[in-house]
């Protein structure tokens, strides 16, 4: 396999990401997001598997849009695009490869277990905080929303504070 190409310059990448964000605002009046798509899938899944439950449990009734399929949402389409876009970039740069990425001192098993745990925390927190790093922090900051700055500071502050305890995973 040939050597993977270099990554883009981060400042150039940042400007491009900013332009994508502006395009999203210009088209739909809202920014980017990711965890909302996961929520849509979960809500749709529950409505399909246990419709009776979805009728009664508070969250599903409060989040029911009255009509329409929860999967037919902006964020779901956007996330499908992310999968395609990521794949294209990876293919062009020669980075397509099945692997578990981890720090030099962690085993694959540990890495995967902590990835799942991290995902659980992140999924829960993104619902509680009404958005994840893209939907709440990045998009919120771009529109100067107080909530965006608060969420951003809380995410990165906590991660920095806990970095020392998680060093075995990464260093």
């Amino acid at each position: 396999m040939k050597e993977a190409k270099k990554y883009m310059n981060p400042y150039l990448g940042g400007v491009l990401l900013g332009l994508v964000l502006i395009a999203a605002f210009w088209v739909s009046g809202r920014g980017l997001g990711a965890s909302g798509a996961v929520k849509s899938v979960v809500v749709a899944g529950v409505e399909t598997i246990a419709p009776g439950h979805a009728e009664t449990a508070t969250f599903y009734t409060e989040n029911k849009e009255g009509h329409g399929n929860p999967l037919k949402s902006w964020l779901v389409f956007e996330m499908l695009g992310v999968l395609v876009g990521g794949f294209l970039s990876g293919a062009l740069a020669g980075r397509l490869k099945f692997k578990v990425e981890k720090g030099p001192n962690a085993t694959n098993k540990i890495r995967l277990i902590f990835a799942v745990i991290g995902g659980i925390f992140f999924g829960f927190g993104a619902q509680l905080g009404r958005g994840c790093t893209s939907g709440s922090a990045l998009t919120g900051m771009a529109v100067l929303s107080v909530g965006g700055f608060v969420t951003m500071a809380a995410i990165f502050g906590t991660a920095f504070a806990l970095a020392y305890f998680a060093r075995k995973l990464w260093l």
Binding site: G33, S35, L96, I117, T133, A159
Partner: peptide, 25 residues
Amino acid sequence: GGVIMGIGFILGGYCPGTSFCAASI
């Protein structure tokens, strides 16, 4: 929510958007 996400970030190494992106490769 931010604090919980921060814990998830340092343990999991991804945030939702980037995890989909990484899964695609």
